[in-house]
Design a protein around this nucleic acid. Structure first.
Length: 481
RNA sequence: CGCGGGGUAGAGCAGUGGCAGCUCGUCAGGCUCAUAACCUGAAGGUCGUUGGUUCGAAUCCAACCCCCGCAACCA
Protein backbone atom coordinates (compact mmCIF):
# COMPACT_ATOMS: atom_id res chain seq x y z
CA UNK A 1 0.00 0.00 0.00
CA UNK A 2 1.61 3.23 -1.11
CA UNK A 3 -0.92 5.53 0.48
CA UNK A 4 -2.30 5.37 3.97
CA UNK A 5 -5.80 6.38 2.95
CA UNK A 6 -8.21 3.85 1.61
CA UNK A 7 -11.53 4.41 -0.08
CA UNK A 8 -13.86 1.51 -0.59
CA UNK A 9 -17.27 1.41 -2.17
CA UNK A 10 -19.97 -1.06 -3.13
CA UNK A 11 -22.20 -0.64 -6.14
CA UNK A 12 -25.43 1.22 -5.45
CA UNK A 13 -28.33 -1.19 -5.48
CA UNK A 14 -31.27 -0.09 -7.55
CA UNK A 15 -34.07 0.52 -5.06
CA UNK A 16 -36.91 -1.27 -6.75
CA UNK A 17 -36.78 -4.46 -4.74
CA UNK A 18 -35.98 -5.98 -1.37
CA UNK A 19 -32.31 -6.49 -0.50
CA UNK A 20 -31.32 -10.05 -1.32
CA UNK A 21 -28.53 -12.36 -0.29
CA UNK A 22 -26.26 -11.09 -3.09
CA UNK A 23 -26.42 -7.62 -1.61
CA UNK A 24 -25.60 -9.16 1.73
CA UNK A 25 -22.50 -10.75 0.24
CA UNK A 26 -21.23 -7.57 -1.35
CA UNK A 27 -21.96 -5.42 1.67
CA UNK A 28 -20.39 -7.69 4.25
CA UNK A 29 -17.33 -8.19 2.07
CA UNK A 30 -16.88 -4.46 1.74
CA UNK A 31 -17.54 -4.01 5.44
CA UNK A 32 -14.91 -6.61 6.30
CA UNK A 33 -12.28 -4.96 4.14
CA UNK A 34 -13.20 -1.61 5.65
CA UNK A 35 -13.02 -2.93 9.20
CA UNK A 36 -9.70 -4.64 8.60
CA UNK A 37 -8.07 -1.48 7.34
CA UNK A 38 -9.71 0.74 9.93
CA UNK A 39 -8.27 -1.50 12.57
CA UNK A 40 -4.85 -1.30 10.94
CA UNK A 41 -4.70 2.29 9.67
CA UNK A 42 -7.14 4.08 11.97
CA UNK A 43 -10.75 5.00 11.32
CA UNK A 44 -9.87 8.36 9.85
CA UNK A 45 -7.86 6.74 7.08
CA UNK A 46 -10.61 4.57 5.66
CA UNK A 47 -13.77 5.74 3.97
CA UNK A 48 -16.50 3.24 3.24
CA UNK A 49 -19.37 4.24 1.01
CA UNK A 50 -22.65 2.48 0.26
CA UNK A 51 -25.90 3.82 -1.10
CA UNK A 52 -28.81 3.53 -3.46
CA UNK A 53 -29.46 4.23 -7.12
CA UNK A 54 -32.85 5.91 -7.16
CA UNK A 55 -33.58 7.16 -10.66
CA UNK A 56 -35.11 5.59 -13.71
CA UNK A 57 -38.31 4.49 -15.23
CA UNK A 58 -38.60 1.27 -13.30
CA UNK A 59 -38.63 3.12 -10.03
CA UNK A 60 -41.07 5.65 -11.36
CA UNK A 61 -43.42 2.86 -12.36
CA UNK A 62 -42.97 0.80 -9.25
CA UNK A 63 -43.79 3.79 -7.07
CA UNK A 64 -47.04 4.29 -8.96
CA UNK A 65 -47.80 0.60 -8.61
CA UNK A 66 -47.38 0.79 -4.86
CA UNK A 67 -49.43 3.96 -4.76
CA UNK A 68 -46.61 6.03 -3.33
CA UNK A 69 -45.08 9.28 -4.41
CA UNK A 70 -41.61 8.80 -5.84
CA UNK A 71 -40.05 10.36 -2.80
CA UNK A 72 -41.98 8.14 -0.43
CA UNK A 73 -41.05 5.14 -2.51
CA UNK A 74 -37.32 5.77 -2.67
CA UNK A 75 -37.24 6.73 1.00
CA UNK A 76 -38.92 3.50 1.88
CA UNK A 77 -36.41 1.35 0.03
CA UNK A 78 -33.39 3.40 1.04
CA UNK A 79 -34.46 2.95 4.64
CA UNK A 80 -34.92 -0.73 4.04
CA UNK A 81 -31.32 -0.97 2.90
CA UNK A 82 -30.14 1.06 5.88
CA UNK A 83 -31.96 -1.33 8.21
CA UNK A 84 -30.41 -4.18 6.31
CA UNK A 85 -26.94 -2.76 6.92
CA UNK A 86 -27.67 -2.31 10.59
CA UNK A 87 -28.96 -5.85 10.85
CA UNK A 88 -25.75 -7.29 9.37
CA UNK A 89 -23.38 -4.93 11.17
CA UNK A 90 -22.37 -3.16 8.00
CA UNK A 91 -20.74 -0.02 9.32
CA UNK A 92 -20.59 2.43 6.45
CA UNK A 93 -19.21 5.96 6.65
CA UNK A 94 -21.64 7.34 4.16
CA UNK A 95 -24.96 6.33 2.70
CA UNK A 96 -25.19 7.84 -0.75
CA UNK A 97 -28.51 8.55 -2.42
CA UNK A 98 -28.68 9.57 -6.06
CA UNK A 99 -31.86 11.51 -5.43
CA UNK A 100 -29.97 13.98 -3.23
CA UNK A 101 -29.58 17.48 -4.60
CA UNK A 102 -25.82 17.35 -4.14
CA UNK A 103 -25.65 14.28 -6.36
CA UNK A 104 -27.58 16.03 -9.10
CA UNK A 105 -25.14 18.92 -9.09
CA UNK A 106 -22.09 16.71 -9.06
CA UNK A 107 -23.43 14.46 -11.83
CA UNK A 108 -24.16 17.53 -13.95
CA UNK A 109 -20.64 18.78 -13.29
CA UNK A 110 -19.32 15.41 -14.44
CA UNK A 111 -21.37 15.69 -17.62
CA UNK A 112 -20.05 19.18 -18.28
CA UNK A 113 -16.46 18.03 -17.99
CA UNK A 114 -17.02 15.14 -20.36
CA UNK A 115 -18.69 17.58 -22.70
CA UNK A 116 -15.82 20.09 -22.42
CA UNK A 117 -13.50 17.29 -23.34
CA UNK A 118 -15.55 16.76 -26.50
CA UNK A 119 -16.73 13.31 -25.49
CA UNK A 120 -20.46 13.95 -25.67
CA UNK A 121 -22.42 14.37 -28.87
CA UNK A 122 -26.04 14.26 -29.95
CA UNK A 123 -27.27 11.61 -32.31
CA UNK A 124 -30.51 10.24 -33.61
CA UNK A 125 -31.23 6.97 -31.95
CA UNK A 126 -33.57 4.50 -33.48
CA UNK A 127 -34.95 1.46 -31.81
CA UNK A 128 -37.90 -0.64 -30.82
CA UNK A 129 -40.26 1.35 -28.68
CA UNK A 130 -43.05 -0.16 -26.62
CA UNK A 131 -45.97 2.22 -26.22
CA UNK A 132 -47.21 0.35 -23.16
CA UNK A 133 -43.87 0.66 -21.41
CA UNK A 134 -43.21 4.09 -22.85
CA UNK A 135 -39.63 3.11 -23.40
CA UNK A 136 -37.16 1.57 -25.81
CA UNK A 137 -36.77 -2.15 -25.54
CA UNK A 138 -33.58 -3.93 -26.44
CA UNK A 139 -33.56 -6.80 -28.91
CA UNK A 140 -32.62 -9.16 -26.14
CA UNK A 141 -35.64 -8.26 -24.05
CA UNK A 142 -38.06 -9.16 -26.79
CA UNK A 143 -39.87 -12.46 -26.65
CA UNK A 144 -40.95 -13.60 -30.10
CA UNK A 145 -40.52 -10.03 -31.21
CA UNK A 146 -42.93 -8.83 -28.56
CA UNK A 147 -42.66 -6.85 -25.35
CA UNK A 148 -42.39 -9.26 -22.42
CA UNK A 149 -44.65 -7.10 -20.25
CA UNK A 150 -47.34 -6.17 -22.71
CA UNK A 151 -47.20 -8.89 -25.35
CA UNK A 152 -47.44 -6.27 -28.05
CA UNK A 153 -45.08 -5.70 -30.91
CA UNK A 154 -42.95 -2.61 -30.33
CA UNK A 155 -42.80 0.01 -33.04
CA UNK A 156 -39.75 1.53 -34.64
CA UNK A 157 -39.15 4.95 -33.13
CA UNK A 158 -36.52 7.59 -33.52
CA UNK A 159 -35.31 9.79 -30.72
CA UNK A 160 -32.42 12.19 -30.49
CA UNK A 161 -30.18 11.47 -27.52
CA UNK A 162 -26.75 12.30 -26.21
CA UNK A 163 -23.97 9.77 -26.62
CA UNK A 164 -20.72 9.30 -24.78
CA UNK A 165 -17.67 8.66 -26.95
CA UNK A 166 -16.54 5.58 -25.13
CA UNK A 167 -14.82 4.41 -28.31
CA UNK A 168 -12.29 7.21 -27.83
CA UNK A 169 -10.88 5.30 -24.89
CA UNK A 170 -10.60 1.83 -26.33
CA UNK A 171 -6.83 1.88 -26.80
CA UNK A 172 -6.36 3.76 -23.57
CA UNK A 173 -8.32 1.16 -21.59
CA UNK A 174 -6.54 -1.79 -23.18
CA UNK A 175 -3.26 -0.14 -22.39
CA UNK A 176 -4.35 0.49 -18.82
CA UNK A 177 -5.12 -3.21 -18.35
CA UNK A 178 -1.83 -4.26 -19.92
CA UNK A 179 0.12 -2.09 -17.52
CA UNK A 180 -2.13 -2.91 -14.53
CA UNK A 181 -3.03 -6.57 -14.89
CA UNK A 182 -3.62 -6.87 -11.15
CA UNK A 183 -6.39 -4.31 -11.04
CA UNK A 184 -9.13 -6.92 -11.42
CA UNK A 185 -9.92 -9.78 -9.11
CA UNK A 186 -10.43 -12.59 -9.93
CA UNK A 187 -7.59 -12.40 -12.43
CA UNK A 188 -9.07 -15.06 -14.74
CA UNK A 189 -11.71 -12.54 -15.72
CA UNK A 190 -9.24 -10.16 -17.29
CA UNK A 191 -9.71 -11.70 -20.74
CA UNK A 192 -13.43 -11.24 -20.47
CA UNK A 193 -12.88 -7.60 -19.56
CA UNK A 194 -10.55 -7.08 -22.51
CA UNK A 195 -13.10 -8.67 -24.75
CA UNK A 196 -15.75 -6.23 -23.59
CA UNK A 197 -13.37 -3.37 -24.30
CA UNK A 198 -12.64 -4.72 -27.76
CA UNK A 199 -16.34 -4.64 -28.55
CA UNK A 200 -16.73 -1.12 -27.23
CA UNK A 201 -19.22 1.25 -28.83
CA UNK A 202 -20.37 4.73 -28.00
CA UNK A 203 -23.21 4.60 -25.55
CA UNK A 204 -26.44 6.47 -25.21
CA UNK A 205 -26.49 8.48 -22.00
CA UNK A 206 -29.70 10.46 -22.08
CA UNK A 207 -33.40 10.09 -22.68
CA UNK A 208 -36.15 12.52 -23.54
CA UNK A 209 -37.64 13.90 -20.37
CA UNK A 210 -41.10 13.02 -21.61
CA UNK A 211 -40.19 9.34 -21.78
CA UNK A 212 -38.11 9.30 -18.60
CA UNK A 213 -39.72 11.69 -16.15
CA UNK A 214 -37.66 10.68 -13.13
CA UNK A 215 -34.08 11.65 -13.80
CA UNK A 216 -31.46 14.36 -13.66
CA UNK A 217 -31.67 17.20 -16.13
CA UNK A 218 -28.94 17.37 -18.74
CA UNK A 219 -26.99 20.65 -18.47
CA UNK A 220 -28.27 23.24 -20.93
CA UNK A 221 -30.96 20.95 -22.33
CA UNK A 222 -34.12 20.75 -20.20
CA UNK A 223 -35.68 18.38 -22.75
CA UNK A 224 -33.23 15.64 -21.84
CA UNK A 225 -32.45 13.73 -18.67
CA UNK A 226 -29.53 11.47 -17.73
CA UNK A 227 -29.91 7.82 -18.56
CA UNK A 228 -29.82 6.29 -15.06
CA UNK A 229 -26.49 4.60 -14.83
CA UNK A 230 -24.59 7.55 -16.24
CA UNK A 231 -25.58 9.58 -13.21
CA UNK A 232 -25.36 6.66 -10.81
CA UNK A 233 -21.77 5.78 -11.68
CA UNK A 234 -20.54 9.25 -10.86
CA UNK A 235 -21.42 8.69 -7.20
CA UNK A 236 -18.12 6.94 -6.64
CA UNK A 237 -16.20 10.16 -6.95
CA UNK A 238 -18.94 12.64 -6.06
CA UNK A 239 -19.05 11.34 -2.54
CA UNK A 240 -15.39 12.14 -1.99
CA UNK A 241 -15.48 15.65 -3.32
CA UNK A 242 -15.68 15.56 -7.12
CA UNK A 243 -16.69 18.99 -8.30
CA UNK A 244 -16.70 20.42 -4.81
CA UNK A 245 -13.45 19.60 -3.04
CA UNK A 246 -10.49 18.72 -5.25
CA UNK A 247 -8.16 18.31 -2.29
CA UNK A 248 -10.41 15.74 -0.67
CA UNK A 249 -10.88 13.96 -3.96
CA UNK A 250 -7.14 13.64 -4.45
CA UNK A 251 -6.77 12.29 -0.95
CA UNK A 252 -9.20 9.45 -1.44
CA UNK A 253 -9.31 8.62 -5.13
CA UNK A 254 -8.54 6.09 -6.63
CA UNK A 255 -10.66 3.68 -4.62
CA UNK A 256 -11.51 0.03 -4.32
CA UNK A 257 -14.76 -1.03 -5.92
CA UNK A 258 -16.80 -4.12 -5.20
CA UNK A 259 -19.45 -5.37 -7.57
CA UNK A 260 -21.20 -8.46 -8.84
CA UNK A 261 -20.66 -10.49 -12.00
CA UNK A 262 -23.30 -8.60 -13.94
CA UNK A 263 -21.52 -5.33 -13.35
CA UNK A 264 -18.14 -5.92 -14.94
CA UNK A 265 -19.09 -3.96 -18.03
CA UNK A 266 -20.25 -0.96 -16.02
CA UNK A 267 -17.50 -0.83 -13.44
CA UNK A 268 -14.68 -2.14 -15.57
CA UNK A 269 -15.30 -0.40 -18.87
CA UNK A 270 -17.89 2.36 -18.98
CA UNK A 271 -17.00 3.87 -15.64
CA UNK A 272 -13.29 3.66 -16.43
CA UNK A 273 -13.91 5.45 -19.73
CA UNK A 274 -15.81 8.15 -17.89
CA UNK A 275 -12.95 8.58 -15.47
CA UNK A 276 -10.49 8.91 -18.32
CA UNK A 277 -12.71 11.54 -19.91
CA UNK A 278 -12.66 13.79 -16.85
CA UNK A 279 -8.96 13.16 -16.31
CA UNK A 280 -9.21 11.07 -13.17
CA UNK A 281 -7.16 7.99 -12.39
CA UNK A 282 -8.69 4.57 -12.86
CA UNK A 283 -10.01 2.59 -9.91
CA UNK A 284 -7.32 1.15 -7.69
CA UNK A 285 -8.96 -2.24 -7.50
CA UNK A 286 -11.97 -3.88 -9.08
CA UNK A 287 -13.23 -6.73 -6.96
CA UNK A 288 -15.83 -8.87 -8.68
CA UNK A 289 -17.31 -11.16 -6.07
CA UNK A 290 -18.96 -14.44 -7.00
CA UNK A 291 -22.62 -15.10 -7.33
CA UNK A 292 -24.54 -16.71 -4.51
CA UNK A 293 -26.39 -19.61 -6.06
CA UNK A 294 -29.31 -21.49 -4.55
CA UNK A 295 -28.77 -24.69 -2.54
CA UNK A 296 -29.11 -26.68 -5.76
CA UNK A 297 -26.14 -24.88 -7.29
CA UNK A 298 -28.13 -22.88 -9.81
CA UNK A 299 -29.11 -19.26 -9.90
CA UNK A 300 -31.80 -18.28 -7.45
CA UNK A 301 -35.17 -17.65 -9.01
CA UNK A 302 -38.64 -17.35 -7.62
CA UNK A 303 -39.91 -19.81 -10.20
CA UNK A 304 -37.41 -22.41 -9.02
CA UNK A 305 -38.24 -21.78 -5.39
CA UNK A 306 -34.57 -21.77 -4.39
CA UNK A 307 -34.40 -18.24 -3.09
CA UNK A 308 -32.48 -17.65 0.11
CA UNK A 309 -33.67 -14.60 1.99
CA UNK A 310 -31.04 -12.79 4.05
CA UNK A 311 -33.76 -11.75 6.49
CA UNK A 312 -34.88 -15.34 7.04
CA UNK A 313 -31.30 -16.44 7.47
CA UNK A 314 -30.67 -13.71 10.02
CA UNK A 315 -33.73 -14.72 11.97
CA UNK A 316 -32.77 -18.35 11.87
CA UNK A 317 -29.06 -18.14 12.67
CA UNK A 318 -28.22 -14.59 13.64
CA UNK A 319 -26.39 -11.98 11.61
CA UNK A 320 -22.87 -12.97 12.56
CA UNK A 321 -23.23 -16.61 11.62
CA UNK A 322 -24.62 -15.58 8.26
CA UNK A 323 -21.75 -13.12 7.87
CA UNK A 324 -19.27 -15.81 8.78
CA UNK A 325 -20.68 -18.19 6.21
CA UNK A 326 -20.86 -15.62 3.43
CA UNK A 327 -17.34 -14.42 4.09
CA UNK A 328 -15.49 -17.61 4.94
CA UNK A 329 -17.77 -20.50 4.09
CA UNK A 330 -18.21 -19.68 0.44
CA UNK A 331 -15.65 -18.58 -2.08
CA UNK A 332 -14.87 -14.86 -2.18
CA UNK A 333 -14.60 -14.64 -5.96
CA UNK A 334 -16.26 -17.73 -7.41
CA UNK A 335 -19.93 -18.56 -7.69
CA UNK A 336 -21.04 -20.73 -4.78
CA UNK A 337 -24.15 -22.53 -3.68
CA UNK A 338 -25.64 -21.37 -0.40
CA UNK A 339 -26.22 -24.43 1.75
CA UNK A 340 -27.53 -24.26 5.28
CA UNK A 341 -25.87 -27.55 6.17
CA UNK A 342 -22.51 -26.10 5.21
CA UNK A 343 -23.27 -22.99 7.23
CA UNK A 344 -24.08 -25.04 10.30
CA UNK A 345 -21.04 -27.25 9.82
CA UNK A 346 -18.69 -24.37 9.30
CA UNK A 347 -20.01 -22.54 12.32
CA UNK A 348 -19.90 -25.54 14.64
CA UNK A 349 -16.46 -26.71 13.66
CA UNK A 350 -14.65 -23.43 13.31
CA UNK A 351 -16.30 -21.10 15.77
CA UNK A 352 -17.83 -23.34 18.44
CA UNK A 353 -15.47 -26.32 18.54
CA UNK A 354 -12.23 -24.72 17.55
CA UNK A 355 -12.07 -21.05 18.48
CA UNK A 356 -14.82 -20.85 21.11
CA UNK A 357 -13.79 -24.01 22.84
CA UNK A 358 -10.13 -23.00 22.99
CA UNK A 359 -11.10 -19.66 24.45
CA UNK A 360 -13.03 -21.45 27.13
CA UNK A 361 -10.28 -23.93 27.86
CA UNK A 362 -7.75 -21.19 28.41
CA UNK A 363 -9.98 -18.98 30.54
CA UNK A 364 -11.17 -21.91 32.59
CA UNK A 365 -7.63 -23.15 33.22
CA UNK A 366 -6.28 -19.77 34.15
CA UNK A 367 -9.02 -19.45 36.75
CA UNK A 368 -8.64 -22.92 38.18
CA UNK A 369 -4.86 -22.56 38.31
CA UNK A 370 -5.15 -19.07 39.76
CA UNK A 371 -2.88 -17.68 37.06
CA UNK A 372 -2.99 -14.24 35.44
CA UNK A 373 -3.13 -14.31 31.65
CA UNK A 374 -2.80 -11.51 29.10
CA UNK A 375 0.72 -10.76 30.29
CA UNK A 376 2.45 -10.70 26.97
CA UNK A 377 5.86 -10.13 28.51
CA UNK A 378 5.66 -13.77 29.61
CA UNK A 379 5.12 -15.09 26.10
CA UNK A 380 8.01 -17.26 24.95
CA UNK A 381 9.88 -15.87 21.99
CA UNK A 382 9.69 -19.10 19.99
CA UNK A 383 5.97 -19.17 20.48
CA UNK A 384 5.65 -15.53 19.58
CA UNK A 385 7.52 -15.91 16.31
CA UNK A 386 5.32 -18.85 15.41
CA UNK A 387 2.25 -16.65 15.92
CA UNK A 388 3.85 -13.76 14.09
CA UNK A 389 4.34 -15.95 11.03
CA UNK A 390 0.59 -16.57 11.07
CA UNK A 391 -0.01 -12.83 11.45
CA UNK A 392 2.06 -12.01 8.40
CA UNK A 393 0.24 -14.58 6.34
CA UNK A 394 -3.21 -13.46 7.50
CA UNK A 395 -2.39 -9.81 6.79
CA UNK A 396 -1.06 -10.66 3.37
CA UNK A 397 -4.31 -12.43 2.53
CA UNK A 398 -6.50 -9.63 3.84
CA UNK A 399 -4.48 -7.13 1.87
CA UNK A 400 -4.98 -9.15 -1.27
CA UNK A 401 -8.70 -9.03 -0.42
CA UNK A 402 -8.78 -12.81 -0.03
CA UNK A 403 -11.26 -12.77 2.81
CA UNK A 404 -12.19 -16.45 2.74
CA UNK A 405 -8.54 -17.51 2.66
CA UNK A 406 -7.68 -15.13 5.49
CA UNK A 407 -10.52 -16.65 7.51
CA UNK A 408 -9.18 -20.10 6.79
CA UNK A 409 -5.74 -19.09 8.00
CA UNK A 410 -7.19 -17.68 11.22
CA UNK A 411 -8.93 -20.99 11.75
CA UNK A 412 -5.62 -22.76 11.24
CA UNK A 413 -4.12 -20.63 13.97
CA UNK A 414 -6.87 -21.53 16.43
CA UNK A 415 -6.51 -25.15 15.36
CA UNK A 416 -2.82 -25.03 16.05
CA UNK A 417 -3.66 -23.61 19.49
CA UNK A 418 -5.76 -26.65 20.28
CA UNK A 419 -2.93 -28.96 19.29
CA UNK A 420 -0.50 -26.92 21.36
CA UNK A 421 -2.62 -26.99 24.53
CA UNK A 422 -3.15 -30.74 24.19
CA UNK A 423 0.54 -31.34 23.79
CA UNK A 424 1.65 -29.10 26.64
CA UNK A 425 -1.11 -30.08 29.09
CA UNK A 426 -1.19 -26.97 31.24
CA UNK A 427 -3.76 -28.72 33.45
CA UNK A 428 -1.29 -31.46 34.37
CA UNK A 429 -0.43 -31.73 38.04
CA UNK A 430 3.12 -32.63 37.05
CA UNK A 431 3.72 -29.07 35.91
CA UNK A 432 4.54 -26.37 38.42
CA UNK A 433 2.52 -23.19 38.40
CA UNK A 434 5.22 -21.19 36.64
CA UNK A 435 5.19 -23.56 33.66
CA UNK A 436 1.41 -23.51 33.39
CA UNK A 437 1.48 -19.76 33.62
CA UNK A 438 3.80 -19.46 30.64
CA UNK A 439 1.76 -21.90 28.54
CA UNK A 440 -1.49 -20.11 29.33
CA UNK A 441 0.00 -16.74 28.59
CA UNK A 442 1.27 -18.04 25.28
CA UNK A 443 -2.26 -19.15 24.55
CA UNK A 444 -3.82 -15.86 25.59
CA UNK A 445 -1.49 -14.21 23.10
CA UNK A 446 -2.62 -16.63 20.43
CA UNK A 447 -6.28 -16.07 21.25
CA UNK A 448 -5.88 -12.36 21.23
CA UNK A 449 -4.43 -12.66 17.74
CA UNK A 450 -7.31 -14.84 16.59
CA UNK A 451 -9.80 -12.36 18.01
CA UNK A 452 -8.05 -9.43 16.38
CA UNK A 453 -8.14 -10.97 12.93
CA UNK A 454 -11.64 -12.37 13.23
CA UNK A 455 -12.96 -8.96 14.26
CA UNK A 456 -13.55 -7.66 10.71
CA UNK A 457 -15.58 -10.78 9.94
CA UNK A 458 -17.57 -11.25 13.16
CA UNK A 459 -17.22 -7.94 15.01
CA UNK A 460 -19.80 -8.45 17.74
CA UNK A 461 -18.66 -11.89 18.85
CA UNK A 462 -15.07 -10.74 18.87
CA UNK A 463 -15.96 -7.82 21.09
CA UNK A 464 -17.45 -10.24 23.59
CA UNK A 465 -14.52 -12.63 23.22
CA UNK A 466 -12.03 -9.87 23.84
CA UNK A 467 -13.77 -8.80 27.00
CA UNK A 468 -14.07 -12.36 28.26
CA UNK A 469 -10.40 -13.01 27.69
CA UNK A 470 -9.36 -9.78 29.33
CA UNK A 471 -11.58 -10.25 32.36
CA UNK A 472 -11.03 -14.00 32.46
CA UNK A 473 -14.71 -14.57 32.46
CA UNK A 474 -15.89 -18.01 31.44
CA UNK A 475 -18.47 -17.93 28.66
CA UNK A 476 -20.02 -20.02 25.96
CA UNK A 477 -19.43 -17.61 23.14
CA UNK A 478 -20.66 -19.82 20.31
CA UNK A 479 -23.43 -22.21 21.15
CA UNK A 480 -23.48 -25.23 18.94
CA UNK A 481 -26.37 -25.47 16.55
C1' C B 1 -24.21 -21.73 -32.43
C1' G B 2 -21.29 -18.22 -29.48
C1' C B 3 -18.57 -16.03 -24.95
C1' G B 4 -16.68 -16.85 -19.86
C1' G B 5 -15.93 -20.10 -15.53
C1' G B 6 -15.66 -25.05 -13.86
C1' G B 7 -15.51 -30.93 -13.66
C1' U B 8 -9.80 -33.77 -8.11
C1' A B 9 -12.22 -38.95 -1.81
C1' G B 10 -19.51 -39.04 0.44
C1' A B 11 -19.80 -33.14 0.54
C1' G B 12 -17.02 -28.43 -0.11
C1' C B 13 -12.38 -27.11 -2.14
C1' A B 14 -6.42 -26.50 -2.78
C1' G B 15 -2.93 -28.21 -6.04
C1' U B 16 -0.54 -25.53 -13.42
C1' G B 17 5.27 -31.04 -15.15
C1' G B 18 8.25 -34.87 -10.56
C1' C B 19 5.81 -40.38 -5.12
C1' A B 20 -2.41 -37.33 -5.15
C1' G B 21 -3.58 -32.82 -0.57
C1' C B 22 -6.91 -29.73 2.98
C1' U B 23 -11.63 -29.00 5.77
C1' C B 24 -16.21 -31.42 7.10
C1' G B 25 -18.28 -36.26 7.42
C1' U B 26 -17.14 -41.82 8.46
C1' C B 27 -14.30 -45.61 11.36
C1' A B 28 -10.67 -46.93 15.30
C1' G B 29 -7.78 -45.34 19.40
C1' G B 30 -6.27 -41.55 23.07
C1' C B 31 -7.09 -37.59 26.51
C1' U B 32 -10.27 -35.38 30.24
C1' C B 33 -8.62 -28.57 31.16
C1' A B 34 -13.02 -27.58 27.73
C1' U B 35 -19.13 -26.35 24.39
C1' A B 36 -20.30 -35.10 23.72
C1' A B 37 -15.57 -30.68 22.79
C1' C B 38 -10.00 -31.61 21.96
C1' C B 39 -5.60 -34.90 20.15
C1' U B 40 -3.63 -39.23 17.20
C1' G B 41 -4.30 -42.71 13.38
C1' A B 42 -7.14 -45.25 9.41
C1' A B 43 -10.45 -46.12 5.40
C1' G B 44 -12.01 -43.59 1.02
C1' G B 45 -9.85 -40.93 -5.57
C1' U B 46 -8.71 -45.03 -12.87
C1' C B 47 -7.74 -36.18 -10.72
C1' G B 48 -14.92 -35.70 -16.69
C1' U B 49 -13.71 -38.96 -21.47
C1' U B 50 -10.39 -40.17 -25.48
C1' G B 51 -5.96 -39.31 -27.92
C1' G B 52 -1.18 -36.65 -28.14
C1' U B 53 3.64 -34.15 -26.28
C1' U B 54 7.27 -35.77 -22.43
C1' C B 55 11.96 -39.87 -19.05
C1' G B 56 7.59 -38.29 -16.29
C1' A B 57 0.81 -35.18 -17.01
C1' A B 58 -4.43 -33.58 -12.31
C1' U B 59 -0.89 -29.99 -14.37
C1' C B 60 0.95 -28.77 -21.42
C1' C B 61 -1.75 -29.67 -26.53
C1' A B 62 -6.24 -31.49 -29.38
C1' A B 63 -11.10 -33.29 -29.74
C1' C B 64 -15.37 -34.55 -27.20
C1' C B 65 -18.96 -35.04 -22.84
C1' C B 66 -21.24 -32.79 -18.56
C1' C B 67 -22.40 -28.61 -14.98
C1' C B 68 -22.83 -23.21 -13.96
C1' G B 69 -23.19 -18.09 -15.54
C1' C B 70 -23.88 -14.60 -19.74
C1' A B 71 -32.07 -13.17 -20.72
C1' A B 72 -35.56 -12.44 -16.58
C1' C B 73 -37.05 -9.17 -9.92
C1' C B 74 -31.52 -8.93 -9.38
C1' A B 75 -24.62 -8.50 -6.52
Amino acid sequence: MDRNKLYITTTLPYVNAEPHVGHALEFVQADTISRYFKQKLGNENVFFNVGTDEHGLKIYRKAKEEGLSINEFVDKYANRLKDFCKLFFVEYDNFYRTSDESHHKAAQEFWKRCNDKGDIYKKKYSGKYCVGCERFITEKELIDGKCPDHGTEPEEKEEENYFFKLSNYKEHLLNWLDTNPDVLKPSQKIDELKQIINDIEDISISRLRESLPWGIEVPNDPQQVFYVWFDALTNYVNVIGFGTDEKKLNEWWPGIQLFGPDNLRFQGVIWQGMLASVGLEHSQKLLEHGMVLGPDGTKMAKSKGNIISPFDQEEKFGAEIVRFYLLVGISTYADSAYKEDDLINMYNSRLANNFGNLLNRVIHLSKSKGVKINRYELVESDFKSKIDAFKDEIERLYEEYEIALAGEKINELADWGNKYITEREPWSKKLDIKESEVILNNLSYLLNTVIYYYTPIIPQSCKVAKKALLEEEKIILFNKI
